[in-house]
């Protein structure tokens, strides 16, 4: 197996707030291989976006990374220790260089008073040694590539002149024009209609193949996950609770939370099936439950509820590299 493009090891991230230190990400480890699409799923407040932003050191000033946390980016045999990059100059490699990001709300991600074209050219001038004329050609070519009609004319327009789907395409074009190794897509289709969502997903799949880059795909929509990614990581309250290939996680979920998410989805092939919500709400990160973080909402713990309340489950892997952090799963293997 080739070495991963990016390895996140024991990432723990806290925010300093007036109420004390809030743990947003707790001991999270995962790898992304070159050309792989990893999906990160979870409810709002589970820490998906914060985890992704850590890869680009984009978290707010009040964030504190734990000392043992490590994020390693490998580019052509060179290893970069991401969390040690302190100066903006050094951070250029992870901000738009080797890593690019597209955001959920494309209207809020473009500057409203600068043309789309100027914004695309600006970052190319920073990240490469192109001349402005070359940068313009490359930008227009990228706009063509993502399927924007009349790209030369669109190049000179502002974000408000684009429709939602077009804006997200332009965002993708902009993120990809510097040829990043890793694209972080934070809920890229959530604000779009299903028909436009289908177009954008199709486009992203094509681009992965063409540019051979990796994607970290953040979403709360398991349908989108099933259609898009190679591997899935499920997050709950800052912890990874399950990681595996998309088939392992969707077809045979090992964690009660993953099962809960799947059971609460309406299924088109069985309209009569009842929707079973995960009971309760996600607890406040200020008040993290002891033991297994999910025990306050778990309906399956039953006989071992005591154990779940007190002991933190170990993140274990089965033979097929399907990882889960749950006492039930480890118990099943022992018996």
């Amino acid at each position: 197996m080739t070495s991963p493009l990016i390895s996140v090891k024991d990432l723990t991230l806290r925010f300093k707030t007036d109420e004390g230190l809030v743990t947003a990400v707790n001991n999270v480890s995962f790898d992304i291989a070159p050309g792989e699409v990893l999906g990160l799923v979870g409810e709002s407040g589970s820490g998906k976006s914060v985890t992704a932003k850590s890869l680009m050191m984009l978290n707010a000033e009040n964030s504190v990374y734990d000392d043992v946390s490590q994020i390693t980016l490998r580019i052509d045999d060179e290893e970069i220790d991401v969390l040690s990059l302190k100066r903006p100059r050094d951070q250029m490699v992870i901000r738009g260089g080797a890593i690019s990001m597209i955001f959920q709300e494309p209207m809020a991600s473009f500057a409203p008073a600068i043309t789309i074209g100027d914004q695309m050219v600006e970052q190319l001038l920073i990240h490469s040694d192109m001349t402005p004329a070359e940068a313009k050609d490359v930008s227009i070519e990228m706009l063509t590539r993502v399927g924007i009609p009349e790209p030369a004319q669109r190049f000179g327009q502002y974000a408000f002149e684009f429709s939602g789907g077009m804006r997200q395409r332009a965002m993708i074009a902009m993120a990809l024009s510097t040829k990043p190794r890793l694209l972080i897509a934070d809920e890229p289709t959530t604000a779009l209609d299903v028909t436009i969502q289908a177009q954008v997903i199709e486009l992203m799949k094509d681009l992965v193949e063409e540019f051979h880059m990796s994607i970290l795909f953040i979403t709360h929509d398991l349908g989108v996950i099933a259609q898009t990614v190679d591997r899935v990581a499920v997050m709950y309250l800052g912890n990874l609770v399950e990681t595996g290939t998309v088939r392992q996680v969707i077809n045979s979920p090992a964690h009660p939370y993953t099962r809960g998410l799947l059971n609460s989805l309406p299924k088109l092939d069985d309209l009569e099936a009842p929707l079973t919500p995960v009971p309760g709400d996600i607890p406040s990160p200020l008040d993290r439950p002891s033991g297994c973080v999910f025990h306050t909402r778990c309906v399956e713990s039953g006989a071992i509820a005591e154990k779940c309340r007190n002991e933190i489950p170990v993140y274990t892997s089965d033979s097929a590299n399907h990882q889960v952090a749950c006492h039930l799963a480890t118990q099943g293997e022992q018996s």
Partner: peptide, 22 residues
């Protein structure tokens, strides 16, 4: 609209009958 709903089955991919434009 029906075919644009992403299927939960990872083995059923790319069956969406895509609608062009907006």
């Amino acid at each position: 609209l029906l075919s644009a709903i992403p299927s939960l089955d990872p083995d059923v991919r790319g069956h969406a009958q895509k609608l062009e434009g907006e």
